[in-house]
Design a protein around this nucleic acid. Structure first.
Length: 464
RNA sequence: GGUGAGGUGGCAGAGCGGUUAUGCGUGGGCCUGCAAAGCCUAUACAAGGGGGUUCGACUCCCUCCCUCACCUCCA
């Protein structure tokens, strides 16, 4: 599998000789997560599911930043402890992402639980003179790290000149960044240099080092983290270990609204909770995977609606297979399955091209629906096809809502009743039953010789 | 200003130096008691502008224009 590496600008072959170690920068837990967070995390979820589907072991570490100025601010505003804010939004995070069918990371380390590890890290940097203590805290000495700027392609000179008004005259240079900030506010911890709290960047460097090692296979996050966050992580980690932090840097494009980045300051945030309520997990995932992960996607209801239509096709396909009857030859379908798998896999192998993978998936759906329309979808074909279908669903993290046996029985009973009415040309009664079934979220499909049905996922914003 | 990513048919969105992307939409049809779903079929002669390289460019090079992101916390 090839992945485009931000650092080298090249496609690089992912090393799968051993366990694949992935570090994904998580969220700062001071507020609801939004659809932009969802996209990044869903992309990594797919990557991981795909690798695992190939039998490759993946270790995915994703942190929660639970020490941060914004958390502290919010805590003050609400007059509660910072930990009350962070634990509340960690719970929201789990609710949101479980709801999106995102597999949980191998581990979700929290900054507050790794204070000692961070202090050790900083101590190392101080020893090597990559850091210094000032009046306000401990800072990273950017000038000592010669490769600074290699990820974001910036040169230090520009940065120093272009640096915004720097209030802290205690720092050696405007671009030096905090490893440890002195403070007595909640939360704060004792340290060899004075009471305070860790800087943001040191957290991720520490987690990577502790849980995954010096050089990991993939390090990623949203594009907006390239600078300064990932640049600073590289500076810290590589100064400490003298080894590259990651073999591949993978960055996910932003979600925009009317062409502009979603941001608190612009007031155009779409929270996951909100979007999930209206569209459900499958539509959101399809929406997030519709374009290449590295490019921006513009949020629009029209696009979500388009995905509802596609999802209905997939649901219909699923139930056609589920409800197929009779045995028959399977040679044709074996070819289709083979072609679909190779198209699907090579799409993902090529820098995680989910758009192409999705088009392989829907080509398959269409073909099955075509066979069903010609009344030749047999049980034998369906059994094989369903297997492939479910494997793709699993990699994409899409889930067909479950249906209980009681539901099936009552549907079948009602269908029988309707058939009788139709036989007697009592169409009003027949239509009444059809409406009754529709209220259960079931749509009847009248084929030439028999009536099948499909259960439609409830999607609030689907008005059809 | 610097750096990066882009500008493809009504919309979304890929690949590729020479062959239909695909999907949605839209028109027509099949099926049906009527619908729905599904299927079939038609439809777009697309490539920001201008140069160049080439037998041939949407695909390579140059240039201009435009959009977005990052340069401050940000997925």
């Amino acid at each position: 599998m090839k992945i485009k590496d931000t650092l080298s600008g090249q496609d690089k072959e992912l090393d799968i000789s051993k366990k694949v170690r992935i570090y994904l920068c998580g969220v700062t837990v001071y507020d609801e997560s939004h659809i932009g967070h969802a996209r990044t995390i869903i992309v990594f979820d797919i990557l991981r599911r795909y690798l695992e589907s190939k039998g490759i072991e993946v270790e995915l570490i994703q942190n929660f930043t639970d020490v941060d100025d914004k958390i502290i601010l919010r805590a003050k505003r609400e007059n509660v402890r910072a930990s009350a804010i962070s634990s509340r939004y960690i719970q929201h995070y789990y609710d949101d992402f479980d709801g999106l069918n995102v597999h949980r990371a191998t581990k979700f380390p929290k900054a507050t639980e790794h204070i000692q590890d961070m202090q050790d890290f900083i101590q190392d940097l101080l020893k090597k003179e990559f850091a210094y203590t000032s009046k306000n805290g401990v800072y990273f000495r950017v000038s000592k790290f010669l490769d600074y700027g290699k990820l974001s392609k910036k040169n230090i000179g520009d940065l120093v000149v272009g640096a915004r008004v720097e209030e802290d005259k205690e720092k050696e240079s405007g671009i030096d960044f905090a490893l440890w900030k002195f403070s007595k506010d909640d939360p704060s911890w004792e340290s060899p240099w004075g009471r305070g709290r860790p800087g943001w960047h040191i957290e991720c460097s520490t987690m990577v080092h502790k849980y995954l090692g010096n050089t990991i296979e993939i390090h990623g996050g949203g594009r907006d983290l390239i600078f300064p966050h990932h640049e600073n992580e590289i500076a810290q980690s590589e100064s400490r270990t003298s080894k590259p932090l990651a073999k591949i840097w993978m960055h996910v494009g932003m979600i925009t609204i009317n062409g502009e980045k979603m941001a608190k300051s612009k007031g155009n945030i779409k929270s996951i909770k909100h979007v999930l309520e209206n569209w459900g997990p499958n539509i959101i995932r399809l929406f997030c995977l519709a374009g290449h992960y590295s490019k921006p996607i513009d949020y629009s209801e029209d696009l979500l609606k388009e995905n509802v239509i596609k999802w209905r096709q997939a649901e219909s396909c699923y139930y056609e297979m589920k409800l197929a009857q009779e045995e028959g030859p399977t040679k044709e379908i074996e070819k289709l399955i083979f072609e679909c798998k190779s198209e699907f896999d090579s799409a993902l192998d090529d820098d995680c091209n989910t758009h192409l993978a999705l088009s392989a998936f829907f080509k398959f759906v269409k073909e099955i629906n075509r066979i069903a329309a010609s009344d030749s979808l047999t049980k034998s074909i369906s059994k094989l096809a369903l297997n492939r279908f479910e494997k793709m669903l699993d990699v994409l993290g899409l889930v067909i809502p479950k249906i209980s046996n009681e539901e099936i029985n009552s549907i079948n009973g009602l269908i029988k009743k309707r058939e009788t009415m139709r036989g007697k040309k009592q169409f009003q009664e027949a239509d009444f039953i059809r409406d009754q079934i529709a209220e259960m979220g079931i749509e009847l499909i009248d084929h030439k010789t028999r009536t099948t049905w499909m259960k439609k996922e409830k999607i609030k914003s689907d008005f059809n």
